[in-house]
Amino acid sequence: MADFSWNTQSALEKALVPGRHGVAGTQAGVTLEEVRDISLVQVMARRGRAAETAKAAKKLFGIEPPRAPGAAVARNATLIWSGPDQFIVFSARQADGQFAKVSKAFAGIASLSDQSDGRCLIRIGGPRARQALAKFCSLDLDDKAFPLGAAATTSIDHTAMNIWRGADGTDGHAVFNMLVFTSFADSLWHTILDSSLEYGVQASSAHAA
C-alpha cells in the first residue's frame, strides 16, 4: 500500500489573501505576514528548578531565557517570556526531532510542551502598524514603553496572545510578532486586517527562517 501524503495546512489557508487590501496608494501603511513552518516549545520550570532551567537554556541556546517579559535572540532560536518561570522557544521548523532534542536538554528540570501547531505567528509592520495595533491591543507600544526585545502576554478579542518586538523592518519601522491560538487565527486575521484597511495593507506569507 502506498504511503499517504501529509501536506500541511496553515490556519490562515482561507483568510490570508496575499496582496494589497484596503486603501490604495503608493506605500502600504501596514504589512501583514504569516510566518509558516515554525517550531514552538513551551518550557516551564519544575517547582523550584527555575535556575537550573535557565542554566540548561544557556547551555543549549547560548543565552539565558528572559526572567521578565522580553524576547532574547540566540543564534538559532528566540526565547520569549510567556509567564513566571516559563518561556517559549521559537525557531524555524527543521526536522521532526526538534522537540525531542530540546526535551532532552531540560529532562527532569522543566516541563515541555510542543506548541508548534498550537499557535499561528502573524507579523505586523509598516509605518502605520502601531495605529492598527492600537485598535486590538491594549498595550502601550510606544518606543519607550515597548522597545526592541520587549515582549508581553496579552489579549486580542478576548483570547490570549504573545507579542514581541523583533528587529525593525528594512523600511526602518517597528515590527511586532504576534502568536495567536491556531483555532482563532482565521477570526483574528479578520480583526487585524479590518483594523489596518484604512492605512492600506500588504499581506503575505513566508517560511520561518
Binding site: Q42, M44, R46, R47, G48, Q86, S111, S113, D114, Q115, S116, D117, G118, R119, F181, T182, S183, F184
Partner: peptide, 15 residues
Amino acid sequence: PDLDVQLTSATDQWA
C-alpha cells in the same frame, strides 16, 4: 502550591 505540576493548554496543538 507545593505540588510539582505544570499545565499547558494543548487544545489547538492537536487535530
